[in-house]
Amino acid sequence: MTDHSARLSSPHEHIFLGDNHERNERRTWIVIAITATMMVAEIAAGSIYGSMALVADGWHMSTHAAAMLIAALAYLYARKNARNPRFTFGTGKLGELAAFASAVVLALIALLIGWESLLRFYSPVAINFPQAINVAVIGLGVNLLCAWLLRDDHLHHGHGHHHGHSPDPDHDHARPHVHDHGEHAGDNNLRAAYLHVLADALTSVLAIVALVLGSLYGWDWMDPAMGIVGGLVIARWSWGLIRDAGRVLLDYVPADEELPEEIREVIEGEGDRITDLHVWQLGPGHHGAIVSIRTAVPQEPSIYREKLAHIHELSHVTIEVEKAA
């Protein structure tokens, strides 16, 4: 007895986008516009006034703008194809793919910063401290504004969740199940864009510290030293994002994930035993599950699905029921 709820011709939709998908997409485009404007202004001003500090910072911002473009395009494509039946379980995980790519770009930026800083130790360059400090302060202000726009609210108001179950006239599964909850699922695509802005802000802060100390005490070595520190911190952020996005892409279930155990507690009992259980993330705040049950008294899959209806993270459930020997 099997509930086939993932067919291409399935009558229900598989939209597993994050709760704030459109808001996050809109804010990402705004941040890209701000970053690109600042980038063009710095490169133009640096070329006109002969400031390599301005030109370098402008091109540095361009790499982050390009990385954030990955996030914005992923939001756009996922939204446009949310109802495309060719995506068997929707486009909710496209953001994880974009986050993984952005994390790789962030790692490359960390390597470049570290390499350039090492070169500066062996080949110091003359620094125009007042001008460089002004550039760093302006850049920090822009980055803080962008970071505020890309902040991820960890808590939000309750909302309706649509569980993509197959319609069943006997149990009224055509009606969406609605559950209120306050826990906000993290959006790694937004996190990737946020980390790029944060990385830029970090380099600005470290640059300001190094430049102020250099101008006051003549510690020119502080500039490349802070660059290496910044590169190491950004590399660590990158690794964390690669790890988290990669886990979702590979359907990895973290050791502290309570959802599988919660499903077992609900289903098992009175002779019902789960013989096979698969749980994976479909998108921010959405999980899918395949539950194989062996029981002496088989019931309709809809009965077991009703038992799981209160688990708001479950947005798509496939139930298989086998009669025990």
Rank of each mutant, 00 (worst) to 15 (best):
D170H: 13
L202E: 01
D180H: 11
A174H: 14
I208T: 10
D168A: 03
L213P: 02
H181K: 04
P176I: 11
H165G: 04
G214C: 07
L213I: 10
V197W: 09
L198I: 13
P169A: 09
Y194P: 05
L202N: 00
V178G: 02
N189S: 09
R175D: 10
A210P: 04
A201C: 08
H177G: 12
R191H: 05
H163D: 12
S204H: 12
Y194M: 12
D170A: 14
G214Y: 01
G164W: 03
A210S: 12
L213F: 13
H181R: 06
H181C: 10
E183H: 12
G214H: 04
T203I: 12
I208W: 02
G186M: 08
A193S: 15
L206H: 10
A174I: 11
P167Y: 05
A201L: 09
H173Y: 15
H163T: 10
G214T: 01
D172R: 11
A192P: 03
D187N: 14
G164M: 09
V178D: 14
Y194G: 05
H165T: 03
P176N: 08
V209I: 15
S166A: 07
E183V: 10
A174Q: 14
H179V: 15
L190Q: 09
D168Y: 04
T203A: 05
R175K: 13
H177I: 15
H171N: 09
D187C: 07
V197G: 01
R175G: 01
S204Q: 14
H181L: 07
V205H: 09
